[in-house]
Design a protein around this nucleic acid. Sequence first.
DNA 1: AGTTAATCGAGACGGTACGTCAGGTCTTGGC
DNA 2: GCCAAGACCTGACGTACCGTCTCGATTAACT
Lengths: 202, 202, 202, 202
Amino acid sequence: MLSVVEETGRPRRPHTGRRRNEAAREAILDATMDLMYADDGAEITIDAIAHAAGVGRQTIYRWWPSKGAVAAEAMARHAQAIVPVTKTGSFRADLLAFISDSFAGLADDRLRGALRRLAAGAQSDEHVAQVLAEFTAQRRAALRQVLEQGVASGDLGPGANLPMLVDMAYGLLWYRVLVGHAPLDADAARDLTSCLLAAGRP
Amino acid sequence: MLSVVEETGRPRRPHTGRRRNEAAREAILDATMDLMYADDGAEITIDAIAHAAGVGRQTIYRWWPSKGAVAAEAMARHAQAIVPVTKTGSFRADLLAFISDSFAGLADDRLRGALRRLAAGAQSDEHVAQVLAEFTAQRRAALRQVLEQGVASGDLGPGANLPMLVDMAYGLLWYRVLVGHAPLDADAARDLTSCLLAAGRP
Amino acid sequence: MLSVVEETGRPRRPHTGRRRNEAAREAILDATMDLMYADDGAEITIDAIAHAAGVGRQTIYRWWPSKGAVAAEAMARHAQAIVPVTKTGSFRADLLAFISDSFAGLADDRLRGALRRLAAGAQSDEHVAQVLAEFTAQRRAALRQVLEQGVASGDLGPGANLPMLVDMAYGLLWYRVLVGHAPLDADAARDLTSCLLAAGRP
Amino acid sequence: MLSVVEETGRPRRPHTGRRRNEAAREAILDATMDLMYADDGAEITIDAIAHAAGVGRQTIYRWWPSKGAVAAEAMARHAQAIVPVTKTGSFRADLLAFISDSFAGLADDRLRGALRRLAAGAQSDEHVAQVLAEFTAQRRAALRQVLEQGVASGDLGPGANLPMLVDMAYGLLWYRVLVGHAPLDADAARDLTSCLLAAGRP
DNA sequence: AGTTAATCGAGACGGTACGTCAGGTCTTGGC
DNA sequence: GCCAAGACCTGACGTACCGTCTCGATTAACT
């Protein structure tokens, strides 16, 4: 529909006067995500975000304290429960499904790239660090929920150190994502599942 | 007046003519480490490294392809034999010692900060990524060596998935370093050791 | 505390937003002229201009294509109406006055130095060449105007080759400025005037 | 002859031990002239000269105090009486021939470029200035010699201001070379000759 | 209905760091 | 001692972003 898009391809947002323009805000977050997903390894700059969003730089600085804060909010918007917890009856099958799904999602180069940028950004930007912390906490909680089913079913011992098991699992995932020395494929998912079961065995 | 040091306090390195000046190389790496250890949060600049090392910028660019590569090599130089493999006779004690020592080294905020910078830099700089890969490969090899003693002693089963165990251990370490949601203290070392033993049990 | 000048002594120019800041432009040109007039023989640096003008380097690059172009424009600004055309009634007196004034202005070492830099710069910088061309064209036009009075009064023949006379006059001037083998004093002005009159005689 | 030139095209000069290598000296001067004649407008660098001459930079610095000094000496070597003084019997013809020949030599873009570089370099390098002074003095002497024939023959008056005529002639030449606003063609030579004759007429 | 006020896209501004280039000095190893 | 080679320190270059500032427009909210 031509009325929304100029021939430059830039959406011509309606002015909202003296109230914040939500369309601009979303354009900024969308553009930021696009850039984080981009696999060209290019550094993300405020200029690039502003230009991609068709926005003035000042509009970004008006609403976010730092580039990391923008990236963080953009990531947080997209970090919704990617891996739903399934229940098949068999604990091992449930755990394997959870881990396999988690790994499978990371087969996408662009998503893996975004996570790497997120982790890297968190090391120097407090806002990003917070988003990473919340994001990983959600994931840990989800996995822990799965493992607690294992305790309930007796597949794991009552004294199993669940936080440690969770951290070992996600530790392996992030370690391989960030270092890249080994894949996160179906075999890895199976092996990790076995190790976790053995480590938590009664 | 000392013959080695000018009144400026800068070591007056002897010129080595048309051959690479090893003293300059080491001054650069030392200065880089000093700056990485500095926890003032300041970004490390090529200018800062050059100035601190008493070196021209071009001398850095001549030998390293990027700032990250310098930092990486500086890190690698200091990461030698941080954790010596001990042998006490008991496999569990050896493994616990290795992990405890590894964790203990990371109690230093500045070293942890350097590792975080290293991991973050690896996500956008290919040269840093390579050094991180080599560095972590060394550490994995060291841990694997320890675990193989466990296989030999029968504490671990002959079919234990050693690469997976190693990645789980270092995964946990890096995960907690980079996310910071849980400590790497003595309890964590003990718990991790137990989990690894259980996961690799015959 | 003065409202215009900070304690650093730097004029705190008002920001003009998204429009070019004329005050900055003039500060740049003024600083450039100051540096060109400085006879310390130091090479003029973009950094030096920017610093002296209290301006970022990029602001210079934004508006001028090369260092020479800045210098050229700075020169051109100061070269306005250095030699006013006078009219006394006697053509010979007018011509002598014009030439004498032109020569007298070059008695200043610093102005002569600036012209030498201008001519030298024009040989390798197209932008400077253009400014030099325009500047010299203005001067030639002024002299030609004087000579045309001579044609009108009959002191010069109707077929006098005015462009050649003009070029001979300014040629001598520049030749002596650039080579420095002979002075541009009152005697020289008188002799040149005589020669021009003789060469253009009816 | 192939024994002198490597396949790289670089002359393999014989080493002269602890005595200065004249072949190297000439290679440097030749390379410098080649670069000055080059019409690509590129700045001449010591590196470029050294590389073109197949010489170490130090060998240049050992024998010349500055880049300009090299260029100056190189120019001086080639500045031998380019314009021979002819004698046809007619003073006007002799003068026209001298001026025409002088102009004709400057039809070559590369020679004109070299002269422009020479004049430009003289403004900031004392050594080049000296060479330019000597070179132009030679030319002025040659032209003066021609004009003195005119005085002897009566074509010029006994009180003709020869230095002024000479400077007007060469002034015009250099002015047009350096500013480039008008050509140095046959017409110009003829007009200049006429003006000089008129200006020096008894 | 007119005034005020805040947002928006835009882009100039003063800076800082970048990576490159050239200058001039120094040393090696061969002759 | 001269020469080719090339590393060294220095410093200027032109570029990329940063975060700030102002503009003119647009519109909402308040007279």
